[in-house]
Every structure is written in C-alpha cells, then in structure tokens.
Amino acid sequence: MAQSSMTVKKKKRRINAVSIPTEIVINIIMILFCLLCVVPFIFVIIISFTSEESIAQIGYSFIPQGWSLDAYKYAFEMGYSLWRSYFNSFFITVVGTVLSVLVCILYSYALFRRDFKYRRFFTFFSFFTMLFGGGLVPTYIVCKQLLGLSDNYAAVIVPLMVNPFNIIVMRTFFQSSVPEELIEAAAIDGSGEYNTLFKIIIPISKPGIATIGLLNALAYWNEWYTPMLYIRDKIHIPLQYLLMQLQRNMEYLAKNSAAMGADAIKAASEMPTQSLRMVLVVLVVVPIACAYPFFQRYIVAGLTIGSVKG
C-alpha cells in the first residue's frame, strides 16, 4: 500500500504539501546550511593532499601552493596497525551498538509502561547518573580492577553501553508513537511482555530505534577516551584513538616543550605531519558517513511510513 501511494506522489504533489515558493525557500536555507557543514570537510580533504612546504609557507588554505600524496602514502604504510584498528572500530561499533540498543530498549520500554510499579524509581535511578558520577579515578578502579576491563574489546564496549540520555529519549519516542491501547489489547490476547515488546512495539518504533542506534553507533565510532584509559596494548586500539594519539602526542609536546627543552623539540620533529593528521580524519569520517544512510532509511521515511491504525 505504501508503495502505491509513493508512486502516486511522484506524479502529483502531495495533497497537503507546502506551496512551491515555500519549498524553494526551504531548499535554499537547507542548501546554505549544508554547504556550511560540508565545506569544512572538503577543507580537511584539501589539507590532506597539501604538501608540507605549502603548509609551512601559507598555512592551511583552500588553495594550497603545492599538492602531495605523501601523507596518504605514509598512512597506508602504517599497514597492519591501521587495518587492525579499522577492524577494531567496526567490531566495537557493531557489537556495541547492538548490545546498547537492546539494553536501552528494554530499560526504556519498562519506563514507558505506566502500569510498571517501579516506573518512577527506575526513571530517577537512570536519570540521576546523568548528573552525578564518581569521577575518573573510582570509575577506572571499578572497570579495571573489579570488572577486568583492560586490554580487551569489552573494555571499550562496556563503559559506553548504557546512556541515560538515550534511555529517556527512547522512552519519549515510545510515549509519542505507541498508543497504550495496543499494549492493553495485546495483554488481553494473552501476549507475554517480551512477546508484546519484540513482536508488536519494536516494529512500529523503528524510527526511534534507528535514531538511538545511530547515536550509539556514532558514540562508539567516535570514542577515543575509553580506549585511552583501558587499552594499553596495540591489538585492540580503535581507529579514532589512533588518530587522537597522534593529536595528543603533538599537544603534549607543545604543552611541555618549555620544561622539556631539547628533548621535546627532538621528539616533536619526529612526529607525523599536519597533512597526515588530516588523512586520518578522512579515514575516520568516511566509513561512518557511508553507514549513515542505512540508519536514515528508517528515520526519514517521513509520512510515507504508515503509523499504527488504532
């Protein structure tokens, strides 16, 4: 049914679509904003192809004086460690996203249920942790010494698994898209709680779930701080941390150069170049940008997704 209505819309404008001038204005605003968003990335790509001499001469520029592939060559010569960290990032993101979405759905669905006896308690229980935490040292102790999260994939996945913000957002999605009559009806039909959730609620909550999934995937993909704390070997390093390592090495030497003196200058002169850092940014961004449309399929389905008919 959805398909047939789609084909109709392609020929004719939707009945209640905005007027054509309005839509043009909307498009212009969108295009301008999108340019603002994309140009910096193009800028990054340009820097990644800029020769070192040009950066030394005129700094970062949209029109460099010279081009070079050296940084890419250098990056690909990193070989194993680069590909390994690529794999790690993928693995961590996929497994982490699946697990965290699952936990988030379960938790927020219970919070969504008005007839859940401890609803308010558990809402507060998760929300409270959004504000208060024990700080770095105690969290580190619990993760490392108590849970053994050190030098393994779990060390990157577990610390990010639950996010109170996502739980509350997911609960709000349920509130705004799932009619409670549906749950009642299912209960009357004798459907168990898990059955109702997985067979009835989840299929109609796809936009919300896809959104939470996307946010989780992004969080996992972008994470570098957790691996910095818990990963000391070279086998489990994700890509984003590999990038941050270079960045932080530079910053550290800059910060301490006055105290370190000759040592810092010598060490800094062995650091990778500016353009290499941009190459790594490109390598980090491209895969996740490619994965984005996958989630988007569910999010921007727009009005074409029929909601539940009571």
């Binding site: 219970a110 558990f122 942790t129 969290t139 849970l147 639950v162 959730l197």
Partner: peptide, 23 residues
Amino acid sequence: MLLTMVAPGAIWLILLRYLPMVG
C-alpha cells in the same frame, strides 16, 4: 517481567555509575 527488562541496565548503572560515587 518488567523488572527483568530493567535488570541489565540497572546492573550496569549500579556497577559503573553508583559504585564509583564513593569517590
């Protein structure tokens, strides 16, 4: 049943958020 749904998240919160609050 609803408690079992909350459980994984709640356990995580206790271990990784509430326990460190000692600090």
